Amino acid sequence: MTLLACNSTPKKNQAKDDGVVPNVESPAIITGANQTENYLKLLEGKKVGVVANQTSVIFKDASEETHTHIVDSLIAMNVNVTTVFAPEHGFRGTADAGEYIEDGVDEKTGLPVFSLYGKNRKPPAEFLENIDVMLFDVQDVGVRFYTYISTLHYVMEIAAELNIPVIVLDRPNPNGHYIDGPILESDVKSFVGMHPVPIVYGMTIGEYGKMINGEKWLDNGIQCDLTVVPLQNYTYASEYDLPILPSPNLPNAKSINLYPSVCFFEGTTVSCGRGTEMQFQIFGAPYLPKDQFDFSFTPQPNFGAKTPKHEGKVCYGKDLRTVEPLNEIRLDWLIEAYTATSDKKTFFNDFFKKLAGTTKLKAQIEQGMSIEDIKATWQPGLESFKETRAKYLLYN
């Protein structure tokens, strides 16, 4: 059975040499999950574990509203799904960022659901006792500190240790059109940054899994039996609006595009809009001067933010919703907020170095280094990474 997904924004062909743009739409992107003919045969007669969340769906037709969850679909196709594993935000995607998630049972299917964002980031071996093959299908956003790639790492690692094959159903990267940021330094490695890659790395999650394997980043250099079901009709120039929210605080395409730049504020005393409906599209704090920051908002508990930073306090900052789409990391907003802060000693917290992936960025900002000079220090690492990345690309 083949199910085609028209879940992307069609892109017109580029202009011809004579300047005339033909009125022809590019074929729709087909996700890995929708190519059932390419992976069902790998699941036949197997006990299957599935790593999934609310984005893990098979699209039934051209309507973005018409889809079924990958787990429900596999069960309907008589695949023996035995276990579900849930990344950050949970199997149904309703938990706050960083919220501890308990193991449980999926009410719809009765399947056990093991959390990979609770007491276990790496699944214990006993969780895989009833599994012959692992299927990974989670929508990523192409940013180093977005934790789904860390979950992929640990799933691949335990699978390699137990000789269990892993199948990754690839999905587009909405931030795949550029590469930017400092390379992660090993001394600040954490669950929000595990590998020596820049903040924005320009790869799909399938390509990223190939890189984890090929560069031997798993424990003791072991390698996983990895299969990637690639996308069809996808390039890094493809326009793609995610039809399902990848997490509660990335509500739209603008927030996803701004996320690599605005998320720096998570490591400071400035709010990035959690507790509003403009998450990662605004920033502000109660102490920023009103005459310089004329946009205001008041964070309140809401879906995805039970205890937002500066809850109930009026924050003064900037509204970034009309900013042109980014193809680089913007540092000017962070530096502007830091410069306007009177108590600079408390502006940054310990989380900032984990987000940045380096201790240097904080020091560079505190020293008053220009954006151009800061970014110049990233270039040698970026050039080296691009050479590594090129070995694992599946798309142009």
Rank of each mutant, 00 (worst) to 15 (best):
Y236W: 07
C6W: 09
Y117D: 08
A125L: 02
P124A: 13
P87E: 05
N7Q: 07
I29N: 07
L184N: 11
E372F: 13
A363H: 09
Q14F: 15
A285V: 00
Y392K: 12
V21T: 14
F85V: 10
T66Y: 05
N396H: 12
T341E: 12
W333L: 14
K313C: 00
Q54P: 04
T227S: 09
H69V: 06
D140S: 01
Y208G: 01
H195S: 03
A5S: 15
P112Q: 13
L393Y: 01
N13T: 13
K345P: 02
G142W: 12
F348K: 00
I335R: 09
G110W: 09
S8K: 04
Y178C: 08
D61W: 08
M278S: 15
V24D: 12
P165G: 10
H89F: 01
I222S: 08
E88C: 02
G317M: 09
N7E: 06
M369W: 10
P112I: 07
F59R: 08
Q292H: 10
F348Y: 08
R121E: 07
T268V: 03
I70A: 01
G110H: 12
T94E: 15
F191L: 12
L3Y: 15
A363D: 11
P124K: 11
M156H: 06
V270R: 00
A160W: 10
G104I: 03
A15H: 14
D103H: 15
I371F: 08
E215T: 04
K360A: 08
L43Q: 09
L74P: 06
T358E: 02
Y201Q: 05
N120G: 04
M369Q: 14
N80M: 06
I371K: 10
I212P: 09
G32V: 02
T235R: 13
P124H: 13
P22Y: 12
V200C: 11
R330M: 15
D294T: 15
Y148F: 14
P112T: 11
V188H: 06
D140L: 03
L331R: 09
E336H: 09
S384A: 14
I329N: 06
K60G: 07
Y39F: 14
S150M: 05
K345I: 03
Q139S: 06
I167N: 05
T377K: 07
K313F: 00
T269Q: 03
V81A: 08
Q223Y: 02
P22A: 10
T377C: 05
D319Y: 11
P243L: 09
T377Y: 06
L116V: 07
P123V: 12
T377H: 04
A33H: 01
P260Y: 11
M211F: 00
Y395G: 09
I205M: 08
G202F: 01
L169K: 02
G49N: 08
R171K: 14
K362S: 02
Q232E: 15
Y287V: 00
